[in-house]
Amino acid sequence: MELSGIASYLISFLTFAGVYAVLALGLNMQWGFTGQFNIGIAGFFAVGAYTSAILTTPSSPAYLGGFGMPFLIGLAGAVIASTLLGLVVGLITARLRTDYLAIASIGIAEMVRLFVKNEDWLTNGVRGIAGIERPFADTVLDSPLTYLVIVALFVVGVYFLVERAYASPWGRVLRAIRENEPATAAAGKSIAGFRLQAFVLGSAIMGLGGGLYAHFFGFLSPEAFMPLYGTFLVWVMLIAGGSGNNRGAILGAVLVWGVWSGTELLTGLLPTEYATQGAAMRVLLIGVLLQVILVTRPEGVLPEKPPKLIARKR
């Protein structure tokens, strides 16, 4: 009994960490590779989650849909929706300093949250969408463990995709833009074009993370997409793990999610009247952790290792 409790906690822990790893990999594409500062992750995450939820839930009079589509169609929809959002944000900001992207992206995240909260016809507003099923629902395969395997497969898939992108000539241009923008422009590369591509691809990955989250948690409400959970944790994960390093992004997701849920266990021991103080204490701890990493080890646990240059034979 005790053992199965631990096992189910572990499965839930790893599934969450996996969802966050997907988000961190998406952010790595934008920030780690290209140096684009997106702090609207919660917005892309929410768009992905809601799109998948609306596509896959059984039809309901309370909100648009659901269309009762299969899991994979829901995920595809999540990716497409967040790609479109990324395209809009990217087109506006690709030519500007990254500070403007930071400000615009936080605005987009707030707008998405306001929209989700106030447009009841689409999202059921603050009441949220319930009953989002896992894939293989009502079959023998339906278990939290199966879903963990599915999430893990997606993490591995996304990892290979971004790792390949990192090593490719395309990824080299992104790193060049990050390191020295004028020199890259002088080499004839379209800065805005490459930035836009990296931003949109990263947004698509975040949308996928949102879809995976929706089917794991089964219930969506606007409160789940506060900037704290959606955005800040992912940033701390990437910085702690090592920005620019895809393995670092995954490791950071597991480590920081471990710290975050570990402190939840600790504050759970407090009497209920201290619940809000406990929550604030956890945020404070994560915030301080970020500052300590930035001051003492800004490169993270696993620093970036660019592929070795292969000398051309003469």
């Binding site: 702090i39 940033w235 910085i239 945020v283 915030g287 301080v288 970020l290 500052q291 930035l294």
Partner: peptide, 9 residues
């Protein structure tokens, strides 16, 4: 990034 973390602190 640091100021974003400071906001939450």
């Amino acid at each position: 990034i640091a100021s974003f973390g400071m906001a939450l602190i």
